[in-house]
C-alpha cells in the first residue's frame, strides 16, 4: 500500500503586535507584547488540515525559534496537526532569510520522506515573504507562491490556482513540492479545547544544530547570514498635514497636483 502523503507546514512565532519599540541603542524590544503565531500561518495550517481530511495525510508543523516558540506548536496541535518540530539553538540567532531557510530545510530533510511543504504568505515582523522560495531551492524541489485555491490533490501531485500579477494560473505540481498560500485561501478553524486536553502531554520534537544533517556552524545564524542589518529606526512620519482653502478652481488644481505627484494619474 502506498504511504499516505506527509505534509510539512512551516509556522513562525511573531510579536503580538507590530507596534514595536526601539531602545536607545537602536535594538528592537520584541518582548513588550506576548508573542503569537504569525497570523498568515494559520492559513497554511488550515490548508494542510483540509488536505489531511481529504486524503489522510500526516501533518507535521515545524518552527525555528526560541524555546518558547513551542507554544505555537501546541496551538497547531489544538487545530489538528499531528506532529510538532521545534528547531532551536543559540547558534541560530541572528538568522536572515538565507540562514532561516537553510535551517528549516535542514530540519525538513531530517523529517523525510515528505511530499508537500506549505508556508504562509509572509510574516508580520520580518515581512519579507522570501523564506518559502529559498527553502524550496535548498530542498531542490519546485515551488509556487501566492496560491489562492487548491483545486485537487492526489498521492502524487497537487493542482492549485496561483495569483499572478495580471492573471490566474492553474498549475499542477508533482510531489515533492512547496507552496505558499494566500490569506483567505480557507477560513482557519479555531483551536479546540477537546484537542487541547488530548494533546496536553504530546511531545514536541526538539532539534538543535548538531541534530541536523549539516553541522557546519558557519551556515547558521549570524555567520550564515549574508544580509547585515546596519540599523533599525522608526519611520519618519513625513505625512504633512495640510488644510487648504480657496475657490473651487484653485482647490481642484491643488488636488490634481497632489494626485499627479503621488502617481495616481495614469
Amino acid at each position: 500500500m502506498p504511504r499516505s502523503p506527509h505534509i510539512i507546514t512551516c509556522i513562525k512565532q511573531v510579536p503580538g503586535s507590530t507596534e514595536v519599540e526601539i531602545d536607545d541603542n537602536g535594538s528592537l524590544i520584541r518582548n513588550a507584547v506576548a508573542a503569537k503565531m504569525n497570523p498568515f500561518d494559520l492559513f497554511a495550517i488550515e490548508t494542510s488540515l483540509r488536505l489531511k481530511e481529504q486524503n489522510g495525510a500526516t501533518v507535521t508543523a515545524i518552527t525555528m525559534g526560541p524555546p518558547r516558540a513551542e507554544l505555537i506548536l501546541r496551538e497547531a496541535f489544538m487545530m489538528g496537526v499531528d506532529e510538532g518540530v521545534l528547531l532551536t539553538d543559540r547558534r541560530f540567532a541572528g538568522s536572515d532569510v538565507l540562514a532561516t531557510a537553510w535551517t528549516i530545510s535542514q530540519g525538513i530533510l531530517s523529517l523525510a520522506p515528505y511530499d508537500l511543504v506549505i508556508c504562509g504568505r509572509q510574516t508580520t515582523d520580518g515581512d519579507t515573504a522570501q523564506v518559502g522560495a529559498e527553502m524550496a531551492e535548498f530542498l531542490g524541489i519546485p515551488h509556487v507562491t501566492n496560491v489562492r485555491a487548491i483545486l485537487s490533490s492526489s498521492d502524487e501531485s497537487i493542482t492549485v490556482e496561483v495569483d499572478l500579477p495580471g492573471a490566474i494560473q492553474v498549475a499542477c505540481l508533482h510531489f515533492p513540492c512547496l507552496i505558499t498560500v494566500e490569506k483567505d485561501i480557507f477560513q482557519p478553524r479555531l483551536p479546540s479545547f477537546r484537542r487541547k486536553l488530548a494533546t496536553r502531554d504530546k511531545q514536541v520534537k526538539v532539534l538543535c544544530l548538531d541534530d541536523l544533517p549539516d553541522t557546519d556552524e558557519k551556515h547558521y545564524g549570524l555567520l550564515g547570514s549574508p544580509t547585515k542589518v546596519q540599523r533599525v529606526y522608526p519611520p519618519r512620519r513625513d505625512v504633512t498635514k495640510e488644510i487648504v482653502h480657496g475657490d473651487p478652481q484653485t482647490l481642484a488644481e491643488r488636488l490634481f497636483h497632489e494626485l499627479e505627484g503621488r502617481k495616481f494619474l495614469q
Binding site: 538565507l98 531557510a101 522570501q130 523564506v131 529559498e134 496561483v162 500579477p165 544580509t227
Partner: peptide, 23 residues
Amino acid sequence: GTTIGRSLAPRVAARFRTGLTAD
C-alpha cells in the same frame, strides 16, 4: 516586487547563497 519577482528573486539568491533585501 511583483508576484513573479518575489518568487524568482529569493530562489536565485538562495542558489548563489547571497543576500536579498525585500521591498
